[in-house]
Design a protein around this nucleic acid. Structure first.
Lengths: 346, 346
DNA sequence: GTTGAAAATGATAGCTCTAGCATTTGGTGC
DNA sequence: GCACCAAATGCTAGAGCTATCATTTTCAAC
């Protein structure tokens, strides 16, 4: 037990004695066995308080930093969760990633962040690269993944959460909301308010496309078939909103409502319309999506669809962690819903 | 060499034969040795093309996914870079993180993202947790780190890039810009334009504080000593800008310029002032910081300080990768500079 | 003191891959 | 056919940790 402290033993001692201290070093200077050090650090319940103290002291003295790669390799747990997100410069995803990161951290997990730039091919490569890190779970954005990807993930038998959309057949778990329902809701709401001459300023993004289709379905039933769209690239921005509106307005001036695929675009439409001397909502209504941080506070304030983006990330984290830890999951599919918020622009 | 394909050998065969295939499995079914498989996958130059083909086929057939944890453990390279950022909901950092992620990916590195919420204590814990993953490099935000942290990082002997600020004594490398210079520049510019009655709407953030101090120094030299500040929490937002201005305006109405610590705040100040019937820049000038995506396109467009936030991330990635790969670094300290952009609000 | 169960600690055997050096192969020149 | 060199492949020995089961210690109860 009370071996005197001696220099690192055998194997390759003499020369390169400048590598970082390992668990064995701590074991040696405390006179304990490596496994006890491991337990003191990772599972303190199993170790006597006074032993833990001794270990901690040695850790502090040596500046020992555990090597999680070795630990993960041995224990087959990485405490790492990978998230795949199209882009961060899209304000939509930021809150979700922040919520995800915060909640994962609270559970002792860390976040490996991967940005695809909306490319499905890229997504597939990324997932392969990611899987070789053996994360304990993966968060995907959207539900539209290549068959290859689904297969890879299924055979990896790793917990997966898909987000930002809804499907009855997720790969594993899902935390999202229905773009179709949102579309119908927007359509019905605006038609109900009496608007008839629609224009769209819309980002070229798959989920946004679903919402638009769904709005058009509602409009179609009301006999509204002519609804021009200015398509803009992602990420949406105020500038693109201005451009989009300018484009629509150049072709036609009698819109009574412009529907936007995000609040950033809506803000741009409002700006451009205002500059053109159009009063909002007097002469033109504007509808957004996303309820970004500014949307309630612009003048006029933007009517929009609110989604609890942060909660989406938090719940994705919770679902993932629960599954990782083998807790029975209440729901495989969580619909976080949405809320239409009527403000001043409609 | 041409051993027949046989089931996984020895050790603990019989029972749990459902674990993922390993490099040894691929070796066995190709009749090659594990190290050759490793080389075929990681260092193909060393392997005959026809051998590589054989390996690839076996990899595809088995669905083998390399275990990077084991690889990293053996090779002491993780191809992982950790970035520590205060918060993502602060639009300022998003572009940098995106640039960092993109550029790292281009070099074959992945990003471990950690959000501190502006807490230095949290940062210290985070770094410890991060180091146990043995990243090949670390990106920090800011230069103001606890002594403990500096010591930990130095003794870990890991490449570090500090960002978003400038100091002659970085821990290792630095990619940033001078908040002091920006402050002086803003001060001189606004004084030069003839403004005298200053108000500040300012986020409670350490780097912003440096800029403000520096502006005040310039003003002081002009005999301008009375410059009230509305301090708001981070992350800055349009809403907080409105609140901040309302607060200032309630106390005093004769401002001729409001300086803001970010464009989001500036947008809020403009909105609130406009709602109050104050014309901008006619009756009141507004100065921002950051040149966010909307700043050039609001009406009126916001005068601001432009920083190439994305380039900052990209250069941080480049510096880190260069150092990791042992290339001699041109500069330890990179000042990405800034540009004052005069638009319509001043 | 002895007993016995619970608590604490330890020994062994991996986890999966790669560095470093050793060996084999293939082809060239004579 | 043989020596020789570069290219290709292989062997051995870890990298640093934990799972699993075995052993020892502790301490209450008698």
């Amino acid at each position: 037990m009370s071996d005197p402290i001696k220099p690192k033993s055998g194997k390759r001692s003499s020369s390169a004695r400048q590598s970082a201290p390992t668990l064995d070093d701590v074991a040696r200077i405390t006179g304990l066995s490596p496994i006890t050090i491991s337990r003191a650090l990772n599972n303190p319940k199993l170790v006597r308080p006074q032993t833990i103290e001794k270990v901690m002291e040695a850790v502090a003295r040596t500046g020992y930093i555990p090597n999680m790669q070795a630990g993960s390799l041995a224990s087959r747990r990485s405490r790492l969760v990978a998230a795949i997100v199209p882009q961060l410069t899209n304000a939509m995803f930021v809150d979700t990633v922040q919520g995800l990161s915060d909640q994962l951290a609270a559970h002792g997990y860390q976040l490996l962040l991967c940005l695809t730039g909306y490319s499905q091919k890229h997504e597939e490569e990324l997932v392969s690269a990611i899987l070789s890190r053996r994360p304990d779970g993966i968060v995907l954005t959207g539900i539209n993944h290549s068959q290859e990807l689904r297969k890879t993930l299924l055979s990896a038998a790793i917990p997966v959460v898909e987000t930002w959309d809804l499907t009855p057949t997720p790969i594993d778990m899902l935390v999202g909301f229905s773009h179709e329902k949102i579309g119908s809701r927007i359509g019905e709401y605006l038609v109900g308010k009496g608007y008839r001459r629609f224009g769209f300023v819309w980002a070229d993004d798959e989920r946004a496309a679903i919402r638009r289709r769904s709005i058009l379905d509602v409009l179609g039933k009301q006999g509204i078939v002519d609804a021009p769209t200015a398509l803009v690239p992602t990420p949406a921005s105020l500038q693109l909103g201005r451009q989009g509106f300018a484009e629509l307005f150049a072709a036609r001036q009698d819109f009574d409502v412009i529907v936007c695929s995000s609040d950033a675009l809506a803000q741009g439409v409002i700006t451009e319309a205002t500059v053109c001397g159009i009063s909002i909502p007097g002469q033109l209504a504007v509808m957004g999506f996303g309820d970004l941080d500014f949307s309630a506070h612009t003048s006029p304030a933007i009517s929009t669809i609110h989604i609890d983006k942060r909660a989406l990330g938090v719940q994705a984290a919770d679902a993932l962690v629960a599954k990782i830890q083998g807790q029975p999951l209440a729901e495989r599919i969580i619909d976080v819903g949405f809320e239409l918020i009527e403000r001043e622009t409609t």
